[in-house]
Amino acid sequence: MNKKTGVTLLFLLLLMVAVMVLSSCTGAVKISLPELLAILENQAGLGDGTGFKSQQAAVLLNIRLPRVMLGMLIGAGLGVSGAGIQGLFRNPLAEPGLIGISSGATLFAVSMIVMEISIFKKLTGMLGFYALSVAAFVGACLTTVIVYRLSMRNGKTIITTLLLSGIAINALAGAFTGLLTYLANDEQLRTITFWSLGSLGGASWETVTGILPFILIPVFGLPFLAKSLNALSLGDAQALHMGVDVVMVKRIIMVLATIAVGASVAVAGVIGFIGLIIPHILRMTFSSDHRLVIPGSALLGAALLSLADLLARTMVVPAELPIGILTALIGTPVFLYIIITERNKTKI
C-alpha cells in the first residue's frame, strides 16, 4: 500500500476509535476511561469485577455500546455508499438518495405506518418490531431497481438518464409520501416525523447484529472497486479501454450502496448529508484517489455519525434531538463551504 494512503487511513482509524471511546463514556451515567476498561476486561473474563459500579456496566453493555456500534455501522455504510455513488455518477454532488434509495424506503415506511392494510398487518404479525425496517429495506431496493431499469439501454447504463429518472422517481415517491402524511392521524404523524428525521434511539444488540452483514459487505467490498472507480472518473469509454468491465462495476456499486443505505434507513430513518459530505471532506483534505476515499469514507463516516449522535443525545438532556437535524445542521454549512470554494477555484 502507498505510504501516504496508509498513514491517512491509520489516522482516520484512530479518530474513529477515539470517538467510540468518547461516546461510550459520555451520557447521563458517566463512565471514566479506567472504568470503561475495567468493564470490558471483566466482560472478557479477565477482570475481577472491581473498579466500576454495576449500574455503569449495565448502562454501557445494554444501552450505550449497542447505540455506539449502530452509529458506527450506519455512518460507515452511509459514508462508503456516498463515496461509491459519487464515483459512479462522476459527480461530486451525487449522494445515495439520488437514485431513490431513501425516498423509496420512506414511502414504504410511511405506507406501513399510515395504511393499515392487510399485507402490512400480516408483516407486523410475522416480524413484529422489525416489520417497519423490512418494509423500508424492500422499498429502498424496489425504487433503486426501477430507477436502474429506466436508465438502461442496450445493456448499458446511461448516467444522465439514471440521474433524471432518479429525480423523477424521488419526486413521485415524495408525492405519495406527502399524500399519506396528509391522510395520517396525529399519532401516526408523530411516528412519521420521528422516522423521517432519523434516530439511533432504537439501538439494541438485535438491530446491530441485524444490519451488520448489510453494512460490512459494502464496507469491505467497495474498496476492491476503487481502481475501477478511478478509471471510471475519466469516462465510461476510457474505463472500458483500460480493461474495466464498466457495466458490471456499475451494477455492483448500485447493489452494495442500496443494501448499505437501505439497511441504515430501515433501522434509523433518513439521515442526510453523511453520504454527501464525508467523501468531500476526504477529497478536499487528502486526495481524490478512491483507494483512499472509499475506505476513508467508511472510517470518517463512522466517526462523524457517532459524534453527531453523541451531541443528539446529550445536548437537550433528558430529551433527544433527532440525529437527522444535527447532521443537516452541521452538514449544510460544510456543503455551502464546498460549493463556494469550488466556485472560487474554477474562477482562476
Partner: peptide, 25 residues
C-alpha cells in the same frame, strides 16, 4: 490503448496520478 476525443474529468486528479492510471491494467 485508446486516446479519445473528449477527455473531461469531474473529480480532480493530479497529473501524475492520472498518468499512473494508464498502468492500471
Amino acid at each position: 490503448a485508446v486516446l479519445s476525443q473528449q477527455n473531461t474529468i469531474s473529480i480532480s486528479f493530479l497529473v501524475h496520478e492520472l498518468v499512473m492510471m494508464g498502468r492500471y491494467p
